[in-house]
């Protein structure tokens, strides 16, 4: 998909998502995943000790937690790719890998060839979940890893649905913070 089409598609999906459309939001993240994977894989090259898919997942988490920083009047692709770049630089710094990431994310995106998902089941997030507080770990594990819904989790853990929602959101925030601290 050309960058201008992708821009329009993603902006429309995010607008629908902000209006409460969950499936539009999932579609938005899917398009974003492809774009982020393409840039990240291209930039990291073949022999990098940083796993591209880890950075892709960290990017998705950051995009999710920082979605209020997209201004609807501004293009969404530069916003999205800046977050990917931020996470890429962060991951490389952690692994002490030298990387040069150009400032213009969009040019970078256009230069990068398509990349495919290896489909690997990666353990990056699971490892980070281990570092959360017990309550957050239970909720995040139940929803994000075991795939239960908020309602099922509330029933299983004997918590109120609202409490589960808040714990899940806080857990995701804490998870994102933890990525920055791993060495």
């Amino acid at each position: 998909m050309a960058a201008t089409d992708l821009e329009e598609t993603m902006a429309n999906l995010m607008r629908a998502a902000l209006a409460g459309d969950e499936s539009a939001y999932a579609d938005f993240l899917r398009h974003g995943t492809v774009a982020a994977r393409r840039v990240i894989t291209y930039r990291l090259g073949r022999a990098s000790p940083v796993a591209p898919e880890d950075v892709v997942q960290e990017t998705l988490l950051a995009v999710h937690l920082k979605r209020h920083t997209w201004r609807q009047s501004e293009p969404i692709l530069p916003w999205f790719l800046s977050i990917a770049r931020h996470k890429l630089v962060d991951a490389c710094r952690r692994q002490r890998v030298r990387i040069s990431v150009p400032i213009d994310d969009l040019a970078e995106f256009l230069a990068a060839p398509d990349a495919t998902d290896s489909g690997a089941d990666n353990q990056h997030i699971e490892r980070a979940v281990e570092g959360l507080s017990e309550a957050q770990r239970k909720v995040v594990r139940s929803i994000a890893i075991e795939g239960r819904t908020i309602r099922e989790t509330a029933a299983a853990l004997a918590m109120k649905e609202g409490t589960v929602r808040v714990a899940f959101h806080r857990g995701l925030s804490a998870l994102s913070q933890r990525f920055g601290r791993q060495t």
Partner: peptide, 17 residues
């Protein structure tokens, strides 16, 4: 976790922006 699963989970986190 597979990336596709992560997407589904994030879409289920409805805390408003």
């Amino acid at each position: 976790m597979k990336t596709e699963d992560l997407i589904a989970r994030l879409a289920a986190d409805p805390v408003p922006r």
